[in-house]
């Protein structure tokens, strides 16, 4: 491969990863914006999506696309349950309470997965073999399909927020929660929907990542720091900013991977993004709903 080919390949890898990260960070951003809960267990939802997909494919024998549909729905259902038993009770309390509660949740999910699914990494064959010619390089078809699906889901969430009744409620509540309640907006239902949507998108990112990264009970921890940094640098509660910074993050990480190991590229990318907060404390695109 020529140097340009390596750069193009890594940039495409970075774009795919950035789009998956955008799916994860979107839910984190929605939950923070609406409920002011910093969900430290959000990376575990991504991991759960991946582990359930691998289990459904390898043990239950389901086709990949079926598993990738079911796993995020299971994660969303789990989040609906957690909304009742945990998030509702954390809502409106000090930030330390939500941090401790969701840190505990992270440990519970990760250890339950370790207990029931084991600690060995699991891999899943990509449902699409082969590759396509793109910008003069050969790139795996599945990764492009995963990126395309991520874009479609991000667009669908954007359209949902823009054009539906509950989308309107989800944009209104973070701006003035008490006013929304006094206007008759069903706050508990909006919270539950937001929590479930966050689980769905993180679980889907995990499912789509499985043929690329495999599945392992600790993979959620690795994604947690980038997810939070993307949400904060994008502007807390700013969905468009979060998605944009996730893609920038992916591209930068991909570019740096040309010259250094993936771990060093990850650390350097985070170091490059953090100074943004010194110059723009409200994030690159400002906080918003």
């Amino acid at each position: 491969m020529m140097d340009f080919d390596v750069v193009a390949f890594q940039l495409l890898n970075g774009l795919v990863w950035g789009l998956l990260l955008a799916l994860i960070a979107l839910g984190l951003c929605l939950i923070y914006g609406l409920m002011h809960i910093s969900n430290l267990a959000h990376g575990s939802l991504f991991m759960l999506g991946a582990v359930l997909t691998a289990y459904a494919c390898n043990t239950l024998g389901l086709p990949f696309w079926g598993a990738a549909l079911i796993a995020p729905l299971v994660v969303a259902a789990l989040m609906l349950l957690l909304d009742r038993v945990l998030f509702t009770h954390v809502l409106g309390r000090e930030i330390a309470v939500s941090i401790l509660a969701t840190a505990g949740l992270l440990l519970v999910i990760d250890n339950l997965v370790l207990a029931f699914f084991g600690g060995e990494p699991a891999s899943v064959d990509a449902p699409l073999d082969g590759a396509v010619e793109l910008f003069g390089i050969t790139y795996p078809s599945y990764r492009l399909a995963a990126a395309g699906l991520a874009i479609l889901v991000l667009l669908a969430v954007g359209l949902f927020l823009r054009f539906t009744k509950y989308g309107l409620f989800m944009r209104a509540v973070p701006q003035a929660r008490a006013l929304a309640a006094a206007t008759g907006v069903p706050i508990a239902r909006v919270n539950a929907l937001t929590i479930a949507l966050g689980g769905l998108t993180a679980g889907l990112a995990g499912a789509l990542a499985t043929p690329i990264t495999g599945a392992h009970f600790q993979m959620g921890l690795a994604i947690l720091a980038p997810s939070f940094i993307v949400v904060v640098v994008g502007g807390l509660g700013n969905l468009g900013g979060t998605v944009a910074v996730a893609i920038i993050y992916g591209l930068l990480r991909g570019l740096l991977s040309v010259a250094m190991t993936p771990t060093a590229a990850e650390a350097t990318t985070l170091l490059c993004l953090l100074p943004v907060l010194y110059f723009r404390p409200r994030g690159l695109f400002g906080g918003g709903a």
Binding site: Q175, L179, T183
Partner: peptide
């Protein structure tokens, strides 16, 4: 008001 929503959207929420 909901400051970042348009006037029409403020009414639509209700």
């Amino acid at each position: 008001v909901f400051p970042e929503l348009s006037v029409a959207e403020n009414i639509k929420v209700a």
